[in-house]
């Protein structure tokens, strides 16, 4: 039964995460926190023409939150911000059971579907995605002053 949750792809991302670290001079700087389990993720990204040029994640958390963050960086790198937002929505809808993920199109992300059967772990998996979304929102609302360092956007999960 553990294999449903901890699919081999998830364990691979956990053991050897993609894009770990911080982007220098980021345009997006977001933090995702889950006080219930003490998880903290930092997502930094640089943009070019509203597309994600580079994106990295840092911080600590359980295997699910780390693997999901690793997959996120892999999937949204090179995408337009609007596409990244669509993907955030898709992931959230998938966890609500509203849509299925097509492995041909989204590769590793399909492995996250197994987490649906473990409701208490869904928030672990969505932490990075929620953080990215608040990062994008904050980036948009601060576009007027493009020269300033990005404002830290914080997403805090609630326990219920």
């Amino acid at each position: 039964m553990l294999d449903d949750l901890y699919r081999e792809i998830i364990l691979d991302h956990y053991r050897s995460p993609m894009n770990r670290g911080r982007v220098e001079h980021p345009d997006i700087h977001a933090e995702g926190k889950n006080p219930l389990c003490g998880d903290e993720l930092i997502i930094t990204a640089s943009l070019e023409d509203e597309s994600i040029l580079e994106i990295k994640f840092d911080g600590h958390g359980c295997s699910i939150s780390q693997a999901s963050a690793s997959m996120l960086t892999e999937q949204v790198k090179g995408r337009r911000l609007t596409e990244a937002e669509d993907l955030v929505e898709l992931i959230k809808s998938m966890f609500k059971g509203e849509v299925e993920i097509d492995p041909d199109e989204l590769g590793d992300l399909e492995a996250l579907q197994g987490i649906r059967r473990y409701p208490v772990r869904i928030k672990c998996a969505t932490l990075a995605w929620n953080a990215l979304q608040v990062g994008i929102d904050t980036h948009r609302s601060s576009l007027e002053d493009a020269e300033a360092a990005p404002e830290l956007a914080v997403f805090t999960e609630h326990s219920i």
Partner: peptide, 26 residues
């Protein structure tokens, strides 16, 4: 190297019920 939620999850798969998290003592 292993988060308490992951520990709790594997323990549960072995039938062992423990609590994980901050225990209302942040």
């Amino acid at each position: 190297g292993i988060h308490s939620h992951d520990v709790g999850q594997v323990l549960d798969s072995e039938g062992v019920a423990v609590r994980t998290g901050h225990h209302c003592a942040q």
